[in-house]
């Protein structure tokens, strides 16, 4: 196979061409090179084709399904949760750094508080990363050809739906959103568009981990929607399932944010079953 050669200054054209299907990418770039188009002209031409292709996809149902089942609800929930998980954790961190000393760790009450805060922080951050990764993975699977427009809309929804706390002494929202939401989202999208099965062990681990952190953080998730604060998990089943005087009417939000993990799991099981039946 002849090696493809790209002229200098065409890096932006190559980047844009990556949004086209493989054969079309080769044919279009080849046509532009043959016509000795400048990189600017090539960018306009390829951009026009990319826009037409994406617009045509939206005449089908798949991108709309992905938009209303993932982008809108998860964009909203991930934006809220990333802000309301990270800023209270940042406030705790600020307090411990400003007021704490290492010798306080010998005090059982202080030690318990630090361990509890650290556990909630780690589980909360793990939850954000898992929710984001599964959302990206399923988004790419539901609408493989429109993945990048949907991914971009989801990323913008996460960043702009709810902003970070203004004038806070310390805010982790931007850092958490980049490292624990947008990067896992990108990784999930890239895994989803390859079309390859995740593997049984990996899928089960992912599903179990996502469900576990979702159960643990369900109250915090509801708290970020209602109170705008990280409500820590309560001990016992009442903390998860609610009580007579605290019915937790928003319990279903946890299902909304965890459904991509369930989809990824069933998708993988179906893929394994069909491979075994061949």
């Amino acid at each position: 196979m002849e090696r493809e050669v790209t002229p200098r200054g065409w890096w932006a054209v190559d980047l844009l061409c990556a949004l086209l299907e493989r054969d079309e990418r080769a044919a279009v770039c080849g046509d532009l090179l043959e016509a000795q188009a400048s990189s600017g002209r090539a960018l306009i031409e390829v951009g026009g084709l990319v826009i037409r292709r994406q617009a045509a996809l939206w005449l089908g149902w798949r991108p709309w399904l992905a938009l209303f089942t993932i982008v809108v609800p998860l964009g909203f929930l991930l934006s809220l949760s990333s802000r309301w998980f990270s800023d209270p954790i940042a406030a705790h961190l600020w307090l411990y750094v400003r007021l704490g000393e290492w010798r306080y760790m010998t005090i059982p009450g202080w030690r318990r508080d630090v361990i509890e805060a650290a556990t909630i922080a780690l589980v909360g951050f793990a939850a954000l990363a898992l929710w984001s990764w599964t959302a990206g993975f399923v988004l790419a699977r539901l609408s493989r050809r429109a993945w990048w427009t949907l991914g971009l809309v989801l990323a913008l929804a996460i960043v702009f739906t709810v902003g970070p706390v203004k004038n806070a002494a310390i805010s982790l929202t931007a850092t958490v959103r980049v490292l624990l939401v947008l990067l896992p989202l990108w990784s999930g999208l890239r895994s989803g568009i390859t079309g390859k099965a995740l593997g049984t062990v990996r899928t089960i681990t992912l599903a179990v981990a996502t469900i576990a952190v979702t159960v643990f953080m369900s109250r915090a998730l509801e708290g970020s929607v209602t109170y705008g604060w990280l409500v820590p998990p309560q001990p016992g089943p009442d903390g998860i399932f609610g009580t007579e005087d605290d019915l937790r009417p928003l319990w279903w939000i946890s299902l909304v944010i965890a459904w991509p993990a369930a989809y990824a799991f069933t998708n993988s099981i179906r893929g394994t079953a069909s491979r075994r039946s061949r």
């Binding site: 090696r3 050669v5 079309e24 044919a27 080849g30 043959e34």
Partner: peptide
């Protein structure tokens, strides 16, 4: 269908 690549097309095939 995809045709053969050529040097003037940077080694890319034609449609």
């Amino acid at each position: 269908w995809m045709g053969d690549p050529s040097p003037e097309r940077g080694g890319r095939p034609k449609r």
